[in-house]
């Protein structure tokens, strides 16, 4: 059992490291500009997909507001970075990026804890709708906030007359962000996320979380506090999403709150489901491929989102329909055992 875990660790980490070296090499050797610009967002989306997989796959709760945590993290990261630069004259980009990401994780974690307490008492689809509501509330509130830095102090307001350098400009969102995030930083964040999640999954709390997912009542009857462990998974996920948000926010010059709306949450959920629920390597691949794919399909311009929608439906039907599975088993009898085992829960 231990050996199996170690092997899957090695494959996952190996894959990420090889991909990183590959991208680093090609960055200097003929990678297109659009793809270069996508490297950091891809890292951010990979971390988002991994952290959502912790909630959906490992903890078994459907969350439709994951972009809300990304939003909290992104704006916190931008504020911290701008505050350090303008208020304290911190020039070091590494320092600002690090503190921005940590701060983003912290605030998103607090938000995750506050929303987790009420949310995790609910079950199933009710939980899903409350997370959706939470994501919309965050977006709506950030839409009406103006934040600026003047001297060493931060100013918060609900109108647009704030003194000093404006960091967050109401509905226009974060403006004139210093783009300090780098691809290696994104890579480190992906590795960090993997270490955190894989360690959590294979630890005592991780097994408790999965026990609570598989059978709530049975888990409770052997003394597992379901609420405690579900909160643990939810908050960990929120922290990681906040860090991803900060990385993302510090990689683009301007972004507004509507960047992190319901559709973003859904896109991340699509990464998780297509990659395989509970499968971390799958989430990484799906997040990377599905972020690049729409850009690559630009040639089809108008039809690309239509094609994306059709592919999404077909893949879901092909991988989940009982009839299609039966058909595959009929025409490929040799692979019968493989088909049976391949149910996306690897």
């Amino acid at each position: 059992m231990k050996k199996k875990i170690l092997r899957s660790y090695l494959i996952t980490f190996g894959m990420v490291i090889v991909a990183f070296i590959f991208c680093q090499y090609f960055q200097g050797h003929g990678m297109s500009r659009t793809l270069k610009g996508q490297l950091i967002p891809i890292c951010a989306y990979i971390v988002m997909a991994l952290s959502l997989n912790l909630v959906v796959g490992v903890s078994g709760e459907l969350s439709l507001g994951h972009a809300g945590f990304m939003s909290v993290g992104a704006f916190t990261g931008v504020i911290i970075s701008g505050w350090l630069l303008n208020g304290f004259g911190v020039e070091s980009t590494v320092m600002r990026l690090l503190l921005g990401i940590l701060g983003g994780g912290l605030t998103a974690g607090i938000a995750g804890f506050l929303i987790g307490i009420p949310v995790l008492r609910l079950r199933g689809d009710y939980l899903a709708i409350v997370t959706l509501a939470f994501g919309e509330i965050i977006r709506n509130i950030i839409n009406c906030i103006w934040i600026s830095v003047d001297g060493k102090s931060l100013h918060f307001a609900v109108t647009n007359n704030v003194p000093g350098t404006v960091l967050v400009n109401g509905p226009q969102g974060a403006v004139k962000v210093a783009r300090i995030a780098t691809f290696p930083a994104g890579f480190v964040l992906v590795l960090f996320t993997l270490v955190v999640i894989l360690n959590l999954v294979n630890s005592h709390p991780g097994r408790a979380i999965m026990a609570a997912r598989d059978n709530r009542i049975a888990a409770e009857s052997v003394g597992i506090s379901v609420l405690k462990y579900k909160t643990m998974a939810f908050v960990t996920s929120a922290v990681l999403a906040g860090m991803a948000g900060a990385l993302y926010g510090l990689s683009i010059s301007t972004f507004d709150p509507s960047k992190f709306d319901f559709n973003t949450s859904i896109n991340i959920l699509v990464f998780v489901v297509l990659g395989g629920i509970g499968n971390m390597s799958g989430s990484i691949i799906a997040a990377a491929v599905l972020t690049i794919l729409p850009e690559k399909l630009r040639a089809f311009s108008d039809y690309r989102m239509l094609a994306y929608a059709i592919v999404l439906i077909l893949v879901m039907i092909a991988t989940n329909s009982a009839q299609v599975r039966g058909l595959i088993a009929k025409f490929a009898p040799k692979k019968k055992s493989a088909v049976k085992g391949d149910d996306g829960n690897a």
């Binding site: 459907l62 959920l269 699509v270 989102m305 999404l312 879901m316």
Partner: peptide, 13 residues
């Protein structure tokens, strides 16, 4: 979840 994602795909479509 599979049905949910299919519904989302249909909505995009």
């Amino acid at each position: 979840l599979a049905v949910l994602i299919t519904a989302i795909g249909m909505s995009y479509f």
